[in-house]
Every structure is written in C-alpha cells, then in structure tokens.
Amino acid sequence: MKKAIKHTISLLVSNKPGVLTRVALVFARRGFNIDSLVVSKAQTPAFSRMNIEATGDERTLSLMMAQLNRLVDVIRAVDHAGEDVVQRELALFKIKCTPRTRTEILQMADTFRGQTVDMGDDTVTLQITGKSTKIEAFHTMMKPFEIMELVRTGKVLMSRGRESTA
C-alpha cells in the first residue's frame, strides 16, 4: 500500500466556464477524492484561484500536478504539502443548547476566539476561524453537545513572505 499524504494544492486558473470541470477530471480519473475545494476570483478578474485538498500517494499526485499544469486554462498549480504556509478556514457551528448549557458553550467558543453570529431559544450559532486543525479541535469540544449543523468553507492558503502562492 502506497503512503497516502494530505496535499494542499493552490491553482491560478483562467476565470472561464468549464475550468473547474477540467481540474476536477484530473482528480476523478485517478480516483482521488477532493477533500475540500475553494474557488474564488483572483485580484485580476481574468483569473480565479482554487485551493484543493486531496489525499493520496506522492507519485500519483506529482503526475497529477504535471497534468494540472498541462491544462491550457491552468496558469500555475503548486502542491504545498510539507510547506509552512499561511492557512485559514472558517466554520459555522449550529449547536442545540438549553439555558444551562449555553454559558458553557459560549465560554468554550470564547477560548477558541469564536464569534456568536446567531442565537435562538434553543440554538447558538458560532463562527470559528483559523487553521483547519483548530476547527477540528473545536469540533471535538462540541461533540458532547448536539451539533445541529456544521458548515466549513474549506482551506484557503497563501505562501509566506515574497514567495508566490501559485
């Protein structure tokens, strides 16, 4: 069994219809599941940025990176596995609560520098921002309570200093 590693890939692509399909097909053809995917406009409107997280063995992934870079609509694709990059994710947690548990939940959110974005009779909605590991840690803390919904944006990242991201 080949060793599976988590890869974080950033791409600078043309902002055109169909580009996402072309990129996704490179992963699908080798049976790679995309763990998370973020697409948004880049600083110039002609381009978009993509951040993709996928798990798989090194050799297949390096072939896939070459295949991504071969796509005409991909300006650049870079794998940041093992690199120290600035990485952020945002998550919204909707937790069921009683007047008794609400304080406890809010205290925990405070520890994680979370924000309360909504509150109802028996729910509280929290926003947690940070590295994906932090969101996972908060997720663990919330498990004893009833998590009604959890929405995560997926990872965005940027290279440090003058290094270009993709």
Partner: peptide, 14 residues
C-alpha cells in the same frame, strides 16, 4: 459535447 470531450481533447472552446 464540451462536457463529453473534456478528457480526450488537448483543449476546447465554446
């Protein structure tokens, strides 16, 4: 046909 041909073309346009 764009969608069907993505995996077998070098590039495509609509």
């Amino acid at each position: 046909v764009m969608g069907m041909s993505f995996p077998v073309v070098k590039h495509s346009y609509r």
